[in-house]
């Protein structure tokens, strides 16, 4: 836990703390970034193509072009995040040199390393990583992720996987709090996570970093759902800019996330919205086309 007991770690987690209760939106250019900021996004995620297009068009998905990221940084005053391929520490070095505010080591892009993730403690810029369960979340935190998000199934417009992953993480944490100390070593082995982090979660009942939700949020009610299941903020990818009226949908999802416990506000936010993105039945997606299974 030595690596998590210093000022750099605290300001990394500190920025994630400041994003709690907010919505982070995927954007592919400056114009979309402005729409997101005007709608009340607490941060934007710069990427080359939104996940549903990556899914459709195929090919290798990489870090966005620095020029586009810089244009986005110039046009908004909120934090700008950008994605790197899993294990691609050189892309991360480029983004750090560009001075983005957060790096997402993301399964949405084509992995660069099928065994190792980036050693995130080696960077000054904070990282967020996806996870499907507690073991994966704690492995990423061990590597230095200062924020965890569920993976869900990006670009599907289908909330089922984000729900599965949030329930898994929250459920496994609850279970840990009931175990005796002598059971935690075995549990660490089962989870494939460092004992110190497992013991920390068992004692505190939560992750040592903020826990957000991503991957399939397309409607205000989707956002309210994951927030009630324990997410502390939401990432919305294709859900906004693949809908018929992005500005209005962005606004509606921000409102529903702020007032997730108040069904009347979620109702008001849901009314008179145009078409949501079409979405995919996750069971119809081929195993090889799933994005969530990337990451180790």
């Amino acid at each position: 836990m030595e690596l998590m007991n210093n000022n750099l770690w605290r300001v990394k987690v500190g920025l994630a703390e400041m994003l709690k209760g907010g919505v982070i939106m995927d954007v592919t250019n400056a114009e979309q970034a402005k729409i997101a900021e005007d709608a009340g996004a607490c941060a934007v995620m710069a990427l080359e193509r939104v996940p549903s297009d990556i899914r459709k068009e195929g090919g290798v998905a990489r870090m966005a072009a620095p020029r586009v990221i810089r244009e986005i940084m110039d046009v908004v005053s909120i934090p700008v995040m950008a994605k790197v391929r899993i294990g691609h520490f050189a892309e991360a070095q480029v983004l750090e040199a560009l001075e983005v505010d957060y790096i997402d080591e993301s399964e949405v892009l084509t992995p660069a390393d099928e065994e190792h993730h980036v050693w995130k403690h080696g960077f000054k810029v904070p990282f967020v990583c996806g996870a499907r369960n507690l073991g994966e979340a704690l492995r990423r935190i061990a590597e230095g992720a200062a924020m965890v998000r569920t993976k869900g199934e990006a670009g599907s417009g289908n909330i089922v996987e984000a729900v599965r992953h949030m329930r898994a993480i929250v459920g496994q944490m609850k279970r840990l709090t009931r175990l005796g100390e002598e059971e935690l070593v075995h549990e660490a082995k089962e989870l494939g996570a460092p004992f110190e982090l497992v013991a920390w979660v068992a004692k505190n009942g939560k992750l040592p970093v903020p826990n957000f939700s991503a991957g399939g949020i397309a409607t205000p009610a989707d956002a309210a759902l994951v927030m009630q299941l324990g997410a502390e903020a939401v990432f919305v990818g294709s859900g906004i800019f693949k809908s018929s009226d992005p500005a209005q949908r962005a606004r509606a999802i921000v409102q529903a996330t702020t007032h997730y416990h108040d069904a009347k506000v979620v109702l008001a936010a849901s009314e008179e919205l145009g078409e949501a993105m079409k979405g995919l039945d996750v069971r119809q997606i081929d195993e090889k086309d799933l994005l969530q299974t990337r990451g180790w």
Binding site: E17, M18, L19, K20, G21, G22, E37, A39, G40, A41, C42, A43, S77, I78, P79, V254, Q255, T258
Partner: peptide
């Protein structure tokens, strides 16, 4: 609290 003042401003106004 802390956070993004643009975001807070939006919620406060609405």
């Amino acid at each position: 609290p802390g956070g993004e003042s643009t975001t807070h401003l939006k919620v406060m106004t609405e």
